[in-house]
Design a binder for these strands. Sequence first.
DNA 1: CGTATCCTTGATTCGCTTCAACATTAGTGG
DNA 2: CCACTAATGTTGAAGCGAATCAAGGATACG
Lengths: 246, 246
Amino acid sequence: MKSTVPVTAADLKRVCSQCNLLELCLPFGMADQDLHRLDDLVAARRKIKRQQPLYRTGDLFEAIYAIRTGSFKTDVLLEDGREQVTGFQMTGEILGLDGISTELHSCNAIALEDSEVCVISYPRLEELSRLVEGLQHQFHKVMSREIVRDHGVMMLLGSMRAEERLAAFLLNMSQRFTARGFSAAEFHLRMTREEIGSYLGLKLETVSRAFSRFQDEGLVAVQQKHIRILDSGGLKNLIQHQAGLR
Amino acid sequence: MKSTVPVTAADLKRVCSQCNLLELCLPFGMADQDLHRLDDLVAARRKIKRQQPLYRTGDLFEAIYAIRTGSFKTDVLLEDGREQVTGFQMTGEILGLDGISTELHSCNAIALEDSEVCVISYPRLEELSRLVEGLQHQFHKVMSREIVRDHGVMMLLGSMRAEERLAAFLLNMSQRFTARGFSAAEFHLRMTREEIGSYLGLKLETVSRAFSRFQDEGLVAVQQKHIRILDSGGLKNLIQHQAGLR
DNA sequence: CGTATCCTTGATTCGCTTCAACATTAGTGG
DNA sequence: CCACTAATGTTGAAGCGAATCAAGGATACG
């Protein structure tokens, strides 16, 4: 009962070349004449309901996924039940790169809301990126960017205190919403306090308290999942100048 | 005053195909007939003295590096002086993948001992991996493996307590020494307590105390940087069954 | 409208950091 | 080769930040 929807012949035309996520996604920076060659890369679309997995740890790796609508979290589970959220992904971002290494996925990708992804067959991607230099390079950039992002999270987890972590998280979300044409100051978080906590290496109560503290200090206005950033400079200061610990 | 040594025409033959690190390095799993085509990929070798950088944050990205001898750490520095070690690299492992993303390196790579690397020109690697399918695939695997490794570190930093982190670190080192034909039980760490601490998100005193505790419990014999693992099962148990926290 | 989920806040506990002193090793120059 | 000094590692005592335990409140969903 996979909800994979094959793309019809008509749809196949201009799948990527007409997508408005172009600048955020895999084809970014590619020459126009190459762009249309990408269109047959996306073999299918797939809709994922909120809370449902796009793939799970141990699933056979066959494709990577570009998020068309919605958002996801990726997490790793330990045998004893502990969960570590390794990332939150938004439209245009690529999921599934973890699977290349062993041909099996090494994390779970769960939809945070009803979402849709483009299914990019990995063998076809390899094939096509041997022919199209721009695609190859862009794909490498996407992987490298993920590595750099991960190093940032390590810095966060290894060297920052609770409030710094949350400030960095909020600024990162704001920046990514901006890149998608949304407001930098006001947005809606799709994940729970517990998921934020897991991502930041904190308990949900600590996340909640930090939110309240930010609100008291006039840095943000928080109403459950709705966030309004009032003083982004203040948040930035918090990160740089709150040294000394750890 | 770069200590880059160009490889002579004679040396160029069989650079990779005769290297004994083959199974650990980039060319792993490639067909024999393709292997010799790799040999002109390594344009040069470079020797790095202990404590010296192979590259620094902000350096222009031109090449990736395969470690021939020695070992490295990579780290990210914050403006206020905080350091986060993002990884320790051993022979056969690849350095520099962070640079592809922005054409600039986003971390420092510092030699932990006098070391030597193979300089792999990135433009040439892209070119050749368009021609040699096996090389392309192996390169993707190397990048994916780095992503998976990073997720493991996030789990460590986000969900484990001090002793669990150190146990996981020791087991990981042991496993990597084993893969290189060294003893799984006895090895010499090239990094300081402070560097281990930075990697694990702990202060050096905490690392030292955890080592002492492991020693008291008969799990390892510690003599400064010389480590002998006495009870690897005990270390593994520590990780899985010490749940409950965080 | 009722119920499960999510969030907030307070009191207390605990693990790690901080501060400090000392021990050991490594590196340097006489 | 040894003396000297800096770097690294160990251990103890005290303090602090985040976790834990607990209760109540808000919100979303069927």
